[in-house]
């Protein structure tokens, strides 16, 4: 896998184990054994250009996650988020989708999250906001796919 400078990546996987994580040995990995405050401290003092989160985002509230991402952006640090949670993919630029140890799909978020059939075959749903906008497109209430709730709500009611 290649990681371009300036892009944030999501690794969507249904089999995250020690073997899988070997691929990321060269990076500092943040697991779910760090508190939110500890994570902020690590990022404040981080000297590399890319950091890896390993299945840890579910331990933060939405506000905490935003603060972490804002701090990463401020410090110009890019991330790789390894996760099984499809909702996490909304925040990255590029997605690698794994089935066990094989890449089955990759691409920009906007293209990968339109592949409903492949994602469902792997056991994922679409992220809520993508699913909702697709269905509202079907009913001619909206006319595009949304990747964040704020924009969808704004366009839906204004």
């Amino acid at each position: 896998m290649k990681y371009e400078e300036g892009l944030n990546y999501c690794i969507l996987s249904n089999q995250i184990n020690l073997e899988f994580l070997k691929e990321f040995n060269e990076y500092v990995i943040i697991d779910d054994n760090k508190t939110y405050t500890e994570v902020l401290e690590i990022i404040e003092n981080f000297l590399e250009k890319r950091i890896v989160f390993n299945e840890s985002w579910y331990t933060y509230s939405k506000g905490q996650r935003k603060k972490i991402l804002d701090l990463l952006a401020l410090r110009k640090i890019n991330y790789i988020n390894i996760t099984s949670n499809i909702e996490d993919t909304l925040l990255c630029d590029y997605i690698y989708v794994f089935d066990k140890d094989k890449i089955v799909m990759e691409g920009k978020k906007e293209s990968v999250l339109k592949e409903e059939k492949i994602l469902k075959r792997l056991g994922y749903s679409l992220p809520f906001v993508v699913d909702l906008s697709l269905q509202l497109n079907y009913y001619n209430i909206l006319d595009k796919i949304y990747f964040n709730i704020e924009s969808l709500v704004h366009d839906l009611w204004n």
Partner: peptide, 8 residues
């Protein structure tokens, strides 16, 4: 929920 995919 750690590691669980939607279907599960």
């Amino acid at each position: 929920s750690k590691g669980l995919i939607t279907k599960e």
